[in-house]
Design a protein around this nucleic acid. Sequence first.
DNA 1: CATGAATGAGCCTTCATTCAT
DNA 2: CATGAATGAAGGCTCATTCAT
Lengths: 209, 209, 209, 209
Amino acid sequence: MTQVADSKQDRIARRQVDKFEARRTELAVATLHTLAELGYARTSLREIAQNSEFSHGVLHYYFADKRDLITEAVRQYEAVCVTRYDEVVARASSPEQLRDEFVAMFFDTLSEDATLHRLWYDLRNQSLFDSSFRADVLEIDSHREAMVWRVISRYAELRDTEPAASPATTYVTLDGIFQRALLHHLTDRPETVAEMRGELPGVIDLLVR
Amino acid sequence: MTQVADSKQDRIARRQVDKFEARRTELAVATLHTLAELGYARTSLREIAQNSEFSHGVLHYYFADKRDLITEAVRQYEAVCVTRYDEVVARASSPEQLRDEFVAMFFDTLSEDATLHRLWYDLRNQSLFDSSFRADVLEIDSHREAMVWRVISRYAELRDTEPAASPATTYVTLDGIFQRALLHHLTDRPETVAEMRGELPGVIDLLVR
Amino acid sequence: MTQVADSKQDRIARRQVDKFEARRTELAVATLHTLAELGYARTSLREIAQNSEFSHGVLHYYFADKRDLITEAVRQYEAVCVTRYDEVVARASSPEQLRDEFVAMFFDTLSEDATLHRLWYDLRNQSLFDSSFRADVLEIDSHREAMVWRVISRYAELRDTEPAASPATTYVTLDGIFQRALLHHLTDRPETVAEMRGELPGVIDLLVR
Amino acid sequence: MTQVADSKQDRIARRQVDKFEARRTELAVATLHTLAELGYARTSLREIAQNSEFSHGVLHYYFADKRDLITEAVRQYEAVCVTRYDEVVARASSPEQLRDEFVAMFFDTLSEDATLHRLWYDLRNQSLFDSSFRADVLEIDSHREAMVWRVISRYAELRDTEPAASPATTYVTLDGIFQRALLHHLTDRPETVAEMRGELPGVIDLLVR
DNA sequence: CATGAATGAGCCTTCATTCAT
DNA sequence: CATGAATGAAGGCTCATTCAT
């Protein structure tokens, strides 16, 4: 009897935990937009709540504190972002196609998700000052590095050659370009962005020589 | 009457403006250290004043608001940083020497001025959210780009070859490496920093092929 | 019809009221420990609920508000405390025995139930500001007074003399000693407590001359 | 020259410190009334500020935190209260006069400064839970004990006899009466207070037998 | 009945900014 | 000019209370 009763209670408890987690995720995702708009330091919990359908009390109900919420939001960002190019890799049949589709998606997400990317750089920057973000930042950064590496190493393979640099160097090069393009995109300098787009294929080739 | 009197008044006015500017600069420099320690968002004017020999009232006398002060401080940062490698370029007699001294200085300043560099990235990051920083940030960024370009183009010259990428790409590559190394330096991962140092000469060579 | 039906309904209603009261009591007792630990102002209903086997929602079902719960808890305290010395009185065969056993129990409960006594004083203190506590506090205080009086008057009897002061004065004297000893006990000054213990028999004798 | 200049600067600095301290004291005294009205737990800094002529920001300017303010307020209370009976002692020419004037002042201050006394007991009670108040509370308590002792020992002297109990016991007895009378005064039971007043001379005589 | 999600008033505190001296 | 007293908006957080399930 206890067996069955326990497992029933367990099921109820698990369902509640699931619900709790689902709501946490929901709130974290809702948070992402406000956060992307204003950045970490300028975003208050009240503001986040006002942009959601809940009161600010709810945020404190589901998250221990502001950092907990932001961290969870960033994890959601990661879930969305970190496999972005994988289908490009999957369907590529020629090096040119892979390269061109990668470049296209690179600049598409740059302008479409500009505020979201801006948030990521904001948080990575926070981690320079606030060690409590570092673990998550480093983990996401390594996933981004791996994501880029999957593209470049596949590109090298299709071109029957080898990557020219380490995964780390490869990543920071493309990430540096992305950061710079983002800044110029937000500064409304489309011509600079276009210029960078024109150069990107050459950079990619440079990375696989 | 007006002629003479005006020019005398002009001189007096100009002298006062100069004094005013000198004091602004002095205060901005005094600000830099505190700012570097805590970052933009976490630094209060009171804190800055307490770490200087001035009262916080005077900050509002010489600067319109916090942003004005920070912007001025960043301009001072630029003055310090942006010619860092020029003497390395000047005294280089062989490509190896130039490359090695550049690498050495690159990682020296990384650890010696870590907090100052961190501040720069903080402010460049702010500019993604706050357009009032952008003009200064873009200007400093272009100076940094030029500084890097002087090194790499001279390196190419010494090796009798050409840079492999544009100034922009060259800059973001090295800057990306610097950012990443800074994060790992502050996270106290010297082994990752050492690894990056080991790879840097190869990256430089990649940039001049 | 109404006659019978009513009385049956009455019985049901009464049984439900009894159950309701029983649950109130149960919850109030469960509350006491947490309350004693933290005091009135610092104890949240959530905390109380977490330290019990109930949810905080149920507290609001059985109690109108926090004050109602606390008041009920205090009444439970009274039930526990207010007959403490009666068995000492009952079994005393000599004045010395009564006095010494009273002194022993006095200081035993001081250290064993320190947090509970602290709560009592906290609530009596609340009643100085909040009239809604006063009726209960005065009632408990009068029971405590009577309890002390049973000891002292019996002691006088055993010594063939009369109490030297009124019940009220007798009570406040011993209660004042108790309060002071409690403060020093909680401040971890056992030597002061020991000193007070040494003096207590003399005070008792003073009260019956 | 430096000698003179320094001492002039010193004088200015000292004057500013004095001004700062004077304002602290002023605010602490102003605080006392709000605090006396509402008690420690129910008093917010905003409420205190609203009852003063300042904004709540000022409180944070002059006091590190709420506890700092309350502690300072209590010290002001002490300064006022702790010598209350000394003039009674000074001018007493007969034991009867001393006793009667003491009794009169005892019950005068009871009703005139009822809220202030209530605050004292509130804070002494806080110290049962919050050790950060204890040092101040114990110190004030010892001053109160000394104050009472000056009365009773002088009374004994005038009556050519000795105190019957230790200073501690003497204090807690009279303080216990005061507490009880205060409670009944605030509960609007003047008849009980009158009764206690009638008994007080007898208690005093008990304390010097 | 019991639960716990949701609310929102209110708390303490920080801080950029103003302004009388 | 420089100081620092004073302001008040805003922030993170707590918690009694309500109410749908």
